[in-house]
């Protein structure tokens, strides 16, 4: 295991101590943070490792949310609903991936974006199952005490994050990760050395979808009510990409730090510039990407220290 992977694991484990520190607001932030990290780490598998810029995260977030919501409605317990949501997301992404991943670059990005719209429309029209535009009420799973509820869902999301982190690290140091790196750098050459690129890309797309699906599931159970515009929100696709870009493509640790930094920025900006927070956040992101195009990971620790010392 690389040092950066070790730091990543430690970072995730530290996050688990959050309930010791704060109240319901902190836990809410923590849950959102864990969710963002899941989305960003997942995006990095297809976007960072394999080099296919996917905008499909919102599709699988919504799919996971609705799958879990509907299953909970049928009295399936949460611990069982989440793996089902994840499995379904993996399967659907894997199957669609075999087709969509024939496209490259912008074409793939647009196609993956269309996937979000397609799933949203299907959910909108399957009124009997999903409630359509009226949304879906989801039974309360964790009890009625506010703090207990907050703590339960924080840990549920954190657990998904932990599994995601372990999976992502396992992928990056495995044959699969090696193959994805080959595909990103030269897909034609990858095929010529005997790499089944379609299979590898499909698995990567499936992996990038399944934890997002699980996160969507936890989200649905947490907020008790979902509707198509909420869970198929395109921001679930865009934000992870911005986070990954801030952190540095391809590096799991970088992406995770990017996600956390983005959330801090978002929260600080929102608190201080409530009137025009989107504009300020946008300007900050543009500035970051302009001056640090390779993300935070391109800053080397030694370099930073030297600069601070003024040498």
């Amino acid at each position: 295991m690389k040092r950066s992977d070790l730091i990543l694991i430690v970072l995730v484990l530290c996050l688990a101590a959050l309930p010791l520190a704060g109240g319901a607001y902190t836990l809410r932030l923590g849950t959102m943070a864990a969710m963002s990290c899941i989305l960003a780490l997942s995006w990095n598998v297809i976007g960072g490792f394999a080099g296919y810029p996917s905008f499909a995260a919102a599709a699988f977030f919504g799919l996971g949310a609705y799958t879990t919501g509907i299953l909970l409605g049928y009295k399936v317990p949460l611990w069982l609903s989440l793996p089902i949501a994840a499995g379904l997301s993996f399967a659907l992404a894997g199957l669609l991936g075999a087709v969509l991943l024939r496209l490259r670059g912008h074409y793939f990005a647009i196609a993956s974006l269309a996937l979000v719209e397609v799933l949203r429309e299907i959910v909108n029209h399957a009124t009997d199952l999903t409630g359509g535009g009226m949304g879906l009420n989801i039974p309360v799973t964790a009890g009625t005490d506010i703090m207990a509820d907050a703590r339960f869902f924080f840990y549920a999301m954190w657990l998904v994050l932990l599994v995601t982190t372990i999976a992502v690290i396992a992928v990056s140091s495995s044959r699969l990760g090696f193959g994805l790196s080959c595909i990103r750098q030269n897909e034609a050459a990858s095929q010529m050395v005997g790499l089944n690129t379609t299979l590898y890309k499909s698995i990567a797309f499936g992996l990038s979808a399944c934890f997002v699906g699980a996160a969507g599931g936890v989200y649905a159970a947490w907020v008790h009510y979902i509707d198509p515009t909420d869970v198929f929100d395109i921001l679930y696709s865009v934000k992870p990409i911005v986070m990954a870009l801030i952190g540095g493509l391809g590096s799991s640790l970088g992406v995770m730090i990017g996600a956390l930094l983005y959330l801090v920025l978002e929260e600080v900006v929102w608190r201080n510039y409530i009137q025009f927070h989107s504009a300020v956040l946008g300007a900050l992101i543009i500035a970051l990407l302009l001056f640090l195009p390779h993300g935070l990971t391109s800053l080397r620790g030694g370099l930073l220290l030297r600069r601070l010392r003024g040498a």
Binding site: Q185, A189, V193
Partner: peptide, 16 residues
């Protein structure tokens, strides 16, 4: 594979 080391370039061929 431009970003990989020469060793990993050849290892990719051997592995896959």
């Amino acid at each position: 594979f431009p970003e990989m080391s020469a060793l990993d370039n050849v290892a990719a061929a051997a592995a896959f």
